[in-house]
């Protein structure tokens, strides 16, 4: 992987926080406006992938199982928000909301649907990063990594479901 572009490496640290902030905004807006966990997750994944492209695979090497666990965790959160209402006697997927007053920010609506969105967010981040890492990295030893540009067969392809 080509990773010697000075401009790119300089710009990325500035772009990543902006992307993360935009992603947070989209996530919070999502309940009643365009946005939500899916698109926010994609944006966060883009930020992580930018770092991967800029600084090479060291930033993610060895963390593959972390991202897989992110998918599982997200799935667990989303499934829990759907299943808990059934245990309380409501129909599957029933959501609720409440209002909380926070100093400086005023009245904030907290919806249990946001938890479901959080699950979606984690699944998307984990999934996109897992797939891209699986497609970029091969299992060659680190010393050969620069010679791998022609792409050896990724062995982790089955992780990206």
């Amino acid at each position: 992987m080509k990773r010697d572009s000075l401009i790119f490496m300089t710009v990325v640290p500035w772009v990543v926080p902006v992307l993360l902030a935009a992603s947070l905004m989209l996530f919070l807006k999502g309940h009643n406006a365009p946005g939500g966990g899916f698109i926010a997750g994609l944006l966060t994944a883009v930020a992580l992938v930018l770092r991967l492209l800029a600084y090479g695979s060291e930033s993610v090497r060895g963390k593959e199982s972390l991202y897989i666990n992110l998918i599982i965790g997200g799935l667990a959160i989303a499934a829990t928000t759907a299943i808990v209402p059934t245990l309380l006697g409501y129909p599957f997927f029933t959501h609720t909301f409440g209002h909380v007053h926070v100093a400086l920010l005023g009245d904030i609506e907290l919806a249990s649907a946001a938890l479901f969105d959080l699950g979606v967010y984690l699944v998307v981040v984990g999934n996109v990063v897992t797939v891209i890492v699986a497609l970029t990295l091969s299992d060659e030893p680190p010393s050969d990594r620069d010679a791998q540009a022609n792409g050896a067969e990724g062995t982790g392809a089955q992780d990206g479901h």
């Binding site: 897989i68 666990n69 599982i72 799935l75 667990a76 499934a79 759907a82 299943i83 059934t86 599957f92």
Partner: peptide
């Protein structure tokens, strides 16, 4: 549907 979903998550862990 819910039962295998939960089971799948646990089994992945």
């Amino acid at each position: 549907v819910a039962l295998p979903l939960v089971a799948g998550i646990v089994l992945a862990l």
